[in-house]
Design a protein around this nucleic acid. Structure first.
Lengths: 138, 138
DNA sequence: AATCACATGCAACAATGTTGCAAATAATTT
DNA sequence: AAATTATTTGCAACATTGTTGCATGTGATT
């Protein structure tokens, strides 16, 4: 719903614009993560490359999306679930990247196991990146 | 030791050259991970940028170093411990990235917890990226 | 020492990301 | 509803990062 998207933007004190609405829509449709290039393709060059970069940056800052670490140098973004934005939890994520089709899944229902760090280290965030073959490619 | 480094290279069927020796040395000195840019700096532009790219690629292929997933778009590399090259284990790594100084630590002594994936997903590799404040910056 | 295979450097290119600024659009005020 | 203000966008220019082909140089092999 357009209205829902507008609400999300306003809640983060962002102006409701065409590009932001469209990009948020894309994230809601995609049930995986998106890279900058994906967004460029799926918007048919309606928006400037720079605008997309800035929109993604803004969304990350506002906690609407989060980045997913990858072993190659391709940054991917995914929608944050509610817990992300409320901040009432450690920023923990489990992601699965398919070696075959490249799709990135957010496994939100899986909790990140506790990790005991050496003395002197303080944990702020933990990401688990599992790679292998996904359910569509097996 | 130069000899030890030469041994590592020969074992992987690689010619022993200046750049490879130097870059391997850097990894042994650094007790963290290195990015391409770090290596460029620490070699004082003695080697071409392309050579460094290719050397890193080769090292990854031969299992001498491995990449570390990061949330920003900076690929980092770290030396593989013996288990990496022998291949007798899952490719699992726990890394710690300091938000303050940016140093990346390989926490080899910490084991990656088992993660139960949804049906249809097959795990090949798992990386845990913990970020926060390291022992030097606390 | 000569040959062969491989590694390197250079040049050129491609992709990705950043910054400043003027024009356009959204939000706010009157 | 129009005018003002604040914010966002697009363009241009640039910076960084990574890739490829090819001639030259160096390490390995005989």
């Amino acid at each position: 719903m357009k209205n829902e998207i507008a609400e999300i933007l306003k809640r983060s004190q962002l102006s409701v614009t065409g590009s932001r609405t469209k990009i948020l829509e894309l994230f809601q449709e995609a049930n995986g993560a998106l890279a900058h290039a994906d967004i460029e393709k799926r918007t048919d060059d309606s928006y400037d490359r720079v605008t997309i970069y800035r929109t993604l940056q803004t969304f990350v800052e506002k906690g609407i999306i989060h980045t997913i670490p990858t072993a190659d140098n391709s940054v991917r973004y995914a929608l944050c679930k509610d817990e992300c934005s409320t901040g009432h939890h450690h920023d923990n994520h489990v992601h699965f990247i398919c070696d075959d089709c490249g799709t990135t899944y957010c496994l939100d229902n899986i909790t990140v196991p506790e990790i005991t760090l050496p003395k002197g280290f303080t944990q702020k965030r933990a990401d688990v990146i599992v790679s292998g073959i996904c359910k569509n490619c097996e």
